[in-house]
Design a protein around this nucleic acid. Structure first.
Length: 223
DNA sequence: AATGTGATCCTCT
DNA sequence: GAGGATCACATTC
């Protein structure tokens, strides 16, 4: 059966209804215009920003990957709009959450003009706040280093799943948002090759915070 | 640190 | 019906 939140026509009306009290982490919400640029420009600028939940969990974004719609064979949107990827074709600044490998959820923020199907996959967070809740959400993990070190790990730690598909990360009224707490992105540097894909491997569209111990992948993949 | 394997089910062809 | 924007654990170096 199709997950209700991936239903093309209903995804907007099926969002979490509860009114946000406040997003705990202090910082400035990113403006809509921040996301309204090509994903390869947005992605590295997203490093060192903070993904925060209204329930108190928050983590600094230390690794991202860009996916560029119609020109990118590794993008879910490469072959056009489907119920699953509909959110990515929607307005920038929303969260596209997908299910993969039969058991994992991953989160992107839609970036670029509406209709282009582009986005940025959040690949790793440095836990900042609500760490006890993250541990509770991932009871089998021994080291705090592994709480959010990987795209499916961080969604589990933050409590993100299909129910959050389509949330508006800009409004700060949907329970999750991305804020700027004053830390600048790392100095510009060339992107790494992307991980975990079978096509489109040649595009250097993965960026991380150099030297940060919460970045995913092997040493060779981190550089 | 690198490699191999099993888990598990949705999505589109 | 095939494969996937992955993780956890075991093994080996």
């Amino acid at each position: 059966m199709q997950h209700p939140c991936t239903n093309n026509t209903n995804w907007r009306t099926r969002l979490v209804k509860k009114k946000a009290t406040s997003i705990i982490w202090p910082g400035t919400p990113l403006p809509r215009a921040f996301f309204d640029r090509v994903a390869t420009k947005v992605a590295p600028q997203l490093l060192n920003k903070v993904l925060a939940s209204e329930d108190g969990r928050a983590g600094r974004i230390v690794e991202v990957e860009a996916y560029l719609g119609a020109i990118d064979p590794a993008a879910h949107t490469y072959r056009g709009k489907t119920p699953r990827n509909a959110v990515m074709f929607g307005p920038p600044g929303h969260m596209y959450v997908y299910f993969t490998y039969g058991m994992h959820w991953c989160a992107n923020c839609v970036s670029g003009p509406e209709g282009d199907g582009c986005g940025v996959l959040i690949r790793a967070l440095e836990p900042l706040h609500g760490i006890e809740q993250m541990r509770a959400a991932r009871p089998r993990v021994a080291s705090d280093r592994d709480l959010c070190r990987g795209p499916a790990r961080l969604t589990q730690a933050m409590g993100i799943n299909g129910a959050q598909n389509g949330l508006d990360l800009v409004s700060a009224h949907d329970g999750f948002t991305i804020v700027d707490d004053g830390m600048a992105p790392p100095k510009a540097r060339a992107g790494n090759l992307r991980i975990g894909i079978s096509v489109g491997k040649d595009f250097p569209w993965r960026w991380n915070v150099p030297g940060n111990r919460y970045v995913s992948g092997t040493t060779a993949q981190r550089r």
